[in-house]
Design a protein around this nucleic acid. Structure first.
Lengths: 343, 343
DNA sequence: ATGCTGGGGTACAACGTTGTAGAGTACCCG
DNA sequence: CGGGTACTCTACAACGTTGTACCCCAGCAT
C-alpha cells in the first residue's frame, strides 16, 4: 500500500539515503540524479511517513491544545486563533476537551497521548494552585487562563484586574452607580471570576461607591443560560441596578436577554458590559460593549512561546508571564455618555 | 530524558519484550515478574512512546477533522461533538481549518500531515463535484456537508431538502405567505444553500404559493454580518414579507437583529426561522425557532463510520450515504399558530 | 607518482516499539 | 520416565526514516 523510500530508491536506481537527501534538499546531488529521483517520487506518488520521521527526529510537528469546551464561543475562537497561528508556523494542532474538570485536566497532563505532540497549550479551568506540581512535566507547556500563577511553565494571559477595573470605570463614567455583576464565583480567590471581581471592587473603591453584596450574581459555569438565570435571581429578589457587568460576554448576553424580556431597555434603563469581545458581541441587540482582552495576541504568543521552548528547552531561562493589552470595545449596550433620559 | 522500555527492562532485570508484554496485558507473566516490572515503571515514570508504537503498528490513534472555520458556531459545535465522540472511542483529534477555500481543501487532501492520522472527517465547503476525484485517496475519509454526492467515500449528512421543506411548511402552517430567504447562493445547484432552497421551493409549490424572486437574499459566506446585510438589502428595495427563512441560524439571527432595529416585531410582524439549532438559538431575543438537523448524530456516526473503515478497509463495501433525522425546534421567533394580530 | 580536498554517493545503525520464533522450565499424562 | 503441553521469558528483526561514517573518484597541488 504505502510507498516508501525503498520503493522510490529502487525505481530511481539509487540508495534510499540519496532519496532522503533529495527530499531534504541536501545540496550536493548531481542534477541528473535529482531528476531521476524526483521522477520516481512523482511516478509512485511517494509521501513521506511522518510517523517514522518523528520517531527518528524526536519531533512530531504537532502541538496539543487543551480547552474546557469548544461549544463555549470564547474557546472556539481561541482554538481558531491558535490553529491559525500554528499553521502559519507549520504545526498541526490536536485539540482536547477537558470539560473544565480538574480530574480530567490532571489526567490529560499525565496522558501518553501527549507523546504524539511536541508541547501543550493548556487552558486550565478546574485545576487550582494546589495542583501546580502537576504542571511540572517533561514536555513544554504554555499555560493559559488564570487558575494558577507562578507555576513552572510559561504563562500567557490577560490583564484581568486592570481590564475589569477599566470596564467598571467605563460604566461609572457614564453615570452608573449601582452596577450588578453576573458570573461571580463564591469564595474563590483565583481564577478569572475572582480577578475580574477584584478589578470591579477596585473601581468602586476608587470612585467612592460602596460595595453592595446584593448586586452580585453567583454562578459556576459561564454558560449562556447561567447569565440568564443569575440575573433573574437578582430581579426576583428585588435588586435595583442601573448597569450589569457580565464577567464574560456569554453571561452578559444571557443577562441582557432577560433584562429586555422583563421590559427594561438597554442601555437606557440598564447598561450592559461584557468581557471577551466575541464575534457575537457585535451582532446582539443592542450590540455589546465589552472588553477586548487581546485574545488573538494571546494565541499567537502562546504558539510562539511554545515553539521557543520546544526549540531551546530549559535553556530559555525561567518561566515567563506574558500579558496581553486590552481595550474597551465600545458598542451600543453601554455608552460613554448616558444615552437618553437621565432618570 | 525520555525513559524507554530499555531503561525499565534494565531496572526490572528482564528483557524489554517482557516489559512490553506487561504493558500490553499479555496474560502469561508470573505475578512476581509483573510486580517487578510495574514497580520499575512507576519508579522511572515510564510513558510509552506513541510515535514508535504508531510506526510499528501502522495506526496512530488520531483522526483529522477538517472544517472551514472554528469561529463559525456551527463548526465549533460540530468539532466539539466529534472530539467528544472520538475521545469516547479512544481517539484523539487533529483539527484543521480550511477557510472553506477550494485550493486549501484540495491541498489538505494531498498533505503529508495527514500521515499522522488514521483517517479524515472532512467537512468540505469549497470543493465542487468536479473535484470528486481528489477524494480518492489512500486513507479513509468520511465526508460531511453537501458539496459532493456520490463520491468515493462514506458520506454522513443531513436531510437538507426535507428539513428545509418542513421548515417552510411550518411557516406556511402558521399563516405566512410571503416568506423571504436569506443566504441563497446565486446560480448554485449543489451545496447546503441550493438544497435548502429546493426544499423551500417544494414547500411553496405544494401549497400553491408563487415563487417571488424579489424575496430572495443572496450572500456568499454564512457569516452573521451577511444575514444582516442581506435582509437590509431586501428592506431597502421595498420587499414585503411576513416571514424570513434564514438558511442557517447565524444568518437568521443577523436578519432578526436588523428586522427589530427597523421597528418590526418578531414574530408578530415577521416570523423568523433558522437552520442548525445552535446553542445560541435558545438564547436570542426572541429565541429562534429552527431546524435541528441532527448534528450530534452526524458527529457520532462520522466517527463510528471512520473507525469501521480504518479497521476493515475497503472490505466494508461500497461508499455509504448516511442521513440524520431532523426536527423543528419550536421557539419564540416563529409559532405554529400566529401569535397576535392576524393582519 | 603521491597526497590532499571535496563532491557525490552508499552502507549501516539507530529512533522505541511490537511480532515472530524459539529457548528453557515445570507439569501432567500414559 | 519419555514426550507432549502449557507457561514464562528472551533474542532478533522489523516499521520508515535520518545521522554517521565511509568509499570512490576527479581535480589539483606537491
Amino acid at each position: 500500500m504505502a510507498v516508501t523510500l525503498h520503493d522510490v530508491a529502487r525505481v530511481a536506481g539509487v540508495s534510499i539515503k540519496t532519496v532522503s537527501n533529495v527530499i531534504n534538499a541536501y545540496p550536493h546531488i548531481r542534477p541528473a540524479t535529482r531528476e531521476r529521483v524526483e521522477a520516481a517520487i512523482a511516478e509512485l506518488g511517494y509521501v513521506p511517513n511522518l510517523t517514522a520521521r518523528s520517531l527518528k527526529s524526536g519531533r512530531t510537528g504537532a502541538i496539543a491544545l487543551a480547552v474546557p469546551e469548544l461549544g463555549l464561543s470564547y474557546f472556539a475562537e481561541l482554538a481558531a486563533a491558535v490553529i491559525e497561528a500554528a499553521e502559519a508556523a507549520g504545526l498541526v494542532v490536536l485539540v482536547e476537551q477537558t470539560g473544565g474538570d480538574r480530574d480530567r485536566e490532571l489526567e490529560l497532563l499525565r496522558s501518553p497521548r501527549l507523546k504524539m505532540t511536541d508541547g501543550l497549550i493548556f487552558s486550565a479551568l478546574g485545576m487550582s494552585e494546589a495542583d501546580v506540581a502537576s504542571l511540572d512535566v517533561d514536555f513544554p507547556v504554555v499555560l493559559l487562563g488564570e487558575r494558577i500563577f507562578g507555576g513552572p511553565t510559561d504563562h500567557v494571559t490577560m490583564r484581568n484586574v486592570e481590564a475589569a477595573r477599566a470596564a467598571t470605570e467605563y460604566l461609572i463614567a457614564s453615570g452608573r452607580r449601582r452596577i450588578a455583576v453576573v458570573g461571580a464565583h463564591e469564595g474563590e480567590v483565583v481564577g478569572s471570576a475572582a480577578l475580574r471581581m477584584q478589578g470591579y471592587l477596585e473601581a468602586l473603591e476608587a470612585h467612592g461607591i460602596d460595595y453592595d453584596e446584593s448586586l452580585i450574581g453567583y454562578t459556576t459555569l459561564w454558560h449562556r443560560s447561567n447569565g440568564a438565570r443569575s440575573i433573574t435571581e437578582l430581579l426576583d429578589r428585588g435588586a435595583e441596578f442601573d448597569a450589569v457587568f457580565g464577567l464574560n460576554d456569554t453571561l452578559a448576553l444571557g443577562a441582557m436577554r432577560v433584562l429586555q424580556a422583563s421590559g427594561r431597555r438597554v442601555p437606557e434603563d440598564v447598561a450592559v458590559m461584557g468581557f471577551d469581545d466575541l464575534d457575537e458581541a457585535g451582532y446582539s441587540i443592542p450590540s455589546l460593549t465589552t472588553v477586548d482582552p487581546g485574545q488573538r495576541w494571546i494565541a499567537q504568543t502562546a504558539v510562539a512561546t511554545l515553539m521557543e521552548r520546544i526549540a531551546t528547552g530549559a535553556e530559555l531561562g525561567p518561566p515567563r508571564l506574558l500579558l496581553a493589552d486590552f481595550r474597551i470595545a465600545e458598542r451600543e449596550s453601554a455608552g460613554a455618555v448616558r444615552a437618553q433620559r437621565v432618570s
